[in-house]
Design a protein around this nucleic acid. Structure first.
Lengths: 222, 222
DNA sequence: TTGCGTTTGAAACAGTTGTTTCATACACTT
DNA sequence: AAGTGTATGAAACAACTGTTTCAAACGCAA
């Protein structure tokens, strides 16, 4: 009896790895239902049986892809530059926004695309994968917003402002497919991403200042 | 030979209408691929053949549903209150934001849900349906942003600011399914929607003021 | 009623889906 | 070399997909 989850030799770039790679690309491109197992195995150069052999089925493969992309995204995001806690608010916010945007727009990671598909039309194949999606960045954003609004700001305002900032970034995650079809420059040049991050930062700083309880704590941009 | 598109009697609440209604609900709930024609006809109380008879197939039914929901959404949005052109900027913006949000969050129209599904994972069944989605509101938003930024603002800044405002609203269209599962109050009480619109307006006015070329034209909120 | 176009009904169709079966080839230890 | 657990391969499977077929029922004018 085969026990594929406990392999002896690591199977580097073997059939299992090729399946994960092909499936990630196809799932991200067409979504779960529009991707057939036959497309996957053809792309991976393996046999139909391989999916069931290594992952127990299409669902299992999908879950494995998500876990793998989550891990990859983590290491990808960790490599990006990050502002220090003692940096001025504008710098910290722009650093975070740029990091989120770069990730959402990145062609290297398929996670944002997979997540947007999953958020809009959740599959029942993900029960233990969904949590801990962007917890660290979410907390970082809340800290920045909290500093900008001042200590007297109510919790609801804090939530709303954090969401206003995040929504401006998430827009590009959700619209990724459409924008790419329309040939948006955001997905080609990193300069466009930086310019966009700069705008979102300036816009959001203005919004935060308008809702701040201590109006003079935030430096005026430009 | 049957010519269903040129019916003599209007077929009010007949099989054709029931099919459209059931299909709209199911497509909005599960998306195009996860909805089977057998589910639709069971929900509509008609026969399997009815879909092909009236709409030529599943795709034709989907297109008919989209056209119908587009028309319904138009009349729905027209009924909402609207600020006058001579009203102050804050009022015009909040009116528009509330209108967009109400529509995105509304349970009566299935269009936002269908659109978000289509934007994230476009089907090839929509070629002539997609244009003229929200042209009027898009222009209205650009006018408001243009007034806020002043005449000297570059076109790019105008685009970016309009998108920043819109993204804060669109967030709820895309996240609709997830937020509803989490029991977000936005989808139950209209007071929550108004509060949200008020926040987005205040936040955006702050952002617009920060990027304005004539800083004193926008009234300070609160 | 007769006739005719329209609508419904049940069944079957052809194609695709994910999955299973089972025989074979492989890698590696004894 | 023999044996054993692992991996691959081709074929077939059962279930489901959207669609088609064709006969029966209906509505309504002549």
């Amino acid at each position: 009896m085969a026990v594929p989850s406990a392999q002896v030799h690591s199977d580097l770039d073997g059939a299992r790895e090729r399946l994960l790679e092909s499936a990630a690309g196809l799932f991200a491109l067409h979504g779960y239902e529009r991707t057939t197992v036959r497309d996957i195995v053809r792309s991976a150069g393996t046999n139909l049986n391989a999916i069931n052999y290594y992952f127990g089925g299409k669902r299992g493969l999908y879950q494995a892809v998500m876990l793998r992309e989550l891990e990859r995204a983590r290491s990808f995001t960790e490599g990006l530059p990050r502002a220090a806690a003692h940096d001025p608010l504008e710098v910290r916010l722009e650093s975070l926004v740029l990091r989120i945007l770069t990730f959402f727009v990145s062609q290297h990671s398929r996670l944002p695309r997979l997540v947007s598909l999953e958020v809009v039309n959740p599959s029942d194949a993900l029960d233990d994968v969904s949590p801990s999606m962007n917890e660290a960045e979410s907390r970082e954003l809340r800290d920045i917003v909290s500093d900008a609004l001042g200590p007297a700001a109510p919790a609801e305002t804090l939530d709303e402002c954090a969401r206003s900032v995040y929504a401006q970034c998430a827009y590009f995650m959700f619209m990724g497919e459409s924008l790419q079809r329309a040939g948006s420059p955001v997905f080609s040049s990193s300069a466009a991403v930086r310019r966009l991050a700069s705008h979102i930062t300036a816009f959001s700083l203005g919004g935060l200042r308008a809702l701040s309880t201590s109006p003079n704590t935030i430096g005026v941009v430009r």
